[in-house]
Simulated assay, not measured.
Amino acid sequence: MAQQRRAGLTWVELFIVIGILTLMMALLLPMVQNAREQARKASWKNYLKSIGLALHNYHDTYRFFPPGGIIREDDVAMHGWLMMIMPYLDANPLSVMIDYDQPWGHPANIPVFKRSIPYYMIPDVDLGLTSAGHGLTQVLGNPNLMHRNSSVRLRELKGGAAHNWFAGEIAGNYQPWGYPFNWRPLGTKLCDGPESFGHSAWDGGHLLLVDGRVSFFSDETSPEILRRLANAPPVATRDQTAVPDKTFQIGNFYWDRFELQSDPQGKNKYLVQVLHNPTGTPLQINVHVTKRFTPEELTYHKTSIEVLHLLSQITPSTDVASTLKATTLAEATSPAQFAANVKTLESLQKQLLKK
């Protein structure tokens, strides 16, 4: 009588199948990773193209490219070019939230500058925040075109738009995107340390050219080619392109926020934003007021833009009760609510890391 065949796989056959699947995964994984990296590069190129379009739209409006930074006569740095092109990057709500009478780093402008802007960061890269709670940029500009109080016009580019550059991604020493000194000399080699341009994972970097193209340059690009781009006229003076000697501390700093007690039927609500260091210790406490939207207003995005107005920054020496009494919060709360708010803020205040 013929022997009945056993159903299923033997251990040897199972190991062979597993080996084949493992080999296929090993062969496919680099292809998948390469496809993802190419998609990241394509998205990043589109971001840079959007920045280029925004710069030209700014030029169409004002007849010159945005200043690299607005620096007052008393040397107070106000706002930079990455902020000025916001209305042309589908980010106009941010531009209307800025207090332009205050410098970029003032607590009143924290609600805007704490944000991370996708256009200014390579996709899927999270560098964290600065120790002051500011969002970062991996894009810096051409100091010959955008520097202190500059107003360079397109017709001043003697070598033509195709032979000059606007901006590119940097290799390190990242800065807040709101910083009014977001420019850097191109240099003659990419991916050559934290003060250079490029992205080391790509063995090179992208440059946004003034004609709107985004070109990739290898880290093996001839120094002469980069030198020609760097020196394309107009060439700014050393005084025009001078920047503070400052390096920003970057890490897993994070913001937390909560609402203070107040009349739920009142026209305003009161919010506290707290910056923490990576260990969770509070570094900043800012009290803001904003409009309380009705359910109907919340259904329309354009009418429900949350604009925060600074009431107070709580420091280790702040008299919390007296400070809050001098604001509209005192009128918007019952005595019990006011007392509870003071207690909450004083508790946070005791945890503040003293500088």
Rank of each mutant, 00 (worst) to 15 (best):
G266I: 14
N252W: 00
W202L: 09
T247M: 00
E297F: 07
G251Q: 08
S218R: 15
V274Y: 00
F216G: 08
V210M: 05
L275G: 11
K269C: 07
L229H: 10
F253N: 06
P223I: 09
F248N: 01
K291P: 00
F293E: 04
Y270A: 14
I305P: 00
A230M: 13
F197T: 10
A201L: 07
I305R: 12
D211H: 06
T299H: 09
F217R: 08
H276D: 01
E297M: 10
N252I: 02
L275R: 11
G266F: 15
E224F: 03
D211W: 08
E297G: 05
S304F: 02
Y254A: 13
V287G: 04
D219F: 10
F248D: 01
L226Y: 04
N252D: 04
L298E: 06
R257C: 04
T299W: 03
R213N: 15
I250Y: 00
H199Y: 15
C191M: 10
D245T: 03
R238Q: 12
H206S: 11
I305C: 06
Y270Q: 11
T294M: 05
R228C: 05
T294I: 12
G198N: 09
C191G: 02
S215C: 09
D245H: 02
G198D: 05
F197C: 11
T241R: 05
G198Y: 13
P278V: 10
L229R: 03
P282F: 01
L226W: 06
L271Y: 02
F216I: 11
Q284W: 06
F253P: 01
G198R: 08
R292W: 01
K291C: 04
E224H: 08
F293Y: 14
T290R: 05
T279N: 04
K291T: 14
E220G: 13
A232K: 05
E306A: 08
T303F: 06
H301S: 14
V274K: 05
L311M: 11
A201W: 02
E195C: 06
L229G: 09
L207A: 08
E306W: 02
T290V: 13
H301F: 08
R292N: 10
S196V: 14
Q284P: 00
I305D: 00
E224Q: 05
Y300Q: 05
T237D: 04
P244W: 01
E259L: 10
P264W: 03
L271T: 09
L271N: 01
L226N: 12
E224A: 14
L308K: 15
W202K: 09
D211N: 15
S304T: 11
E306D: 07
S222N: 12
T290I: 09
P233V: 08
A236D: 02
V243L: 01
V243G: 00
P278H: 03
S218Q: 11
V289L: 07
E220T: 15
A232I: 11
R213T: 15
T294R: 11
V307D: 01
S222Y: 01
S196L: 12
R227F: 11
L209V: 06
P233W: 03
L283E: 01
T241I: 15
L298N: 10
R213P: 02
T299A: 15
L308T: 06
F253G: 05
F216A: 09
K267C: 04
N252R: 14
S262M: 12
V287D: 00
S196M: 12
D211V: 10
R228F: 02
R227N: 10
E224L: 13
H276L: 11
F217K: 04
Q273E: 09
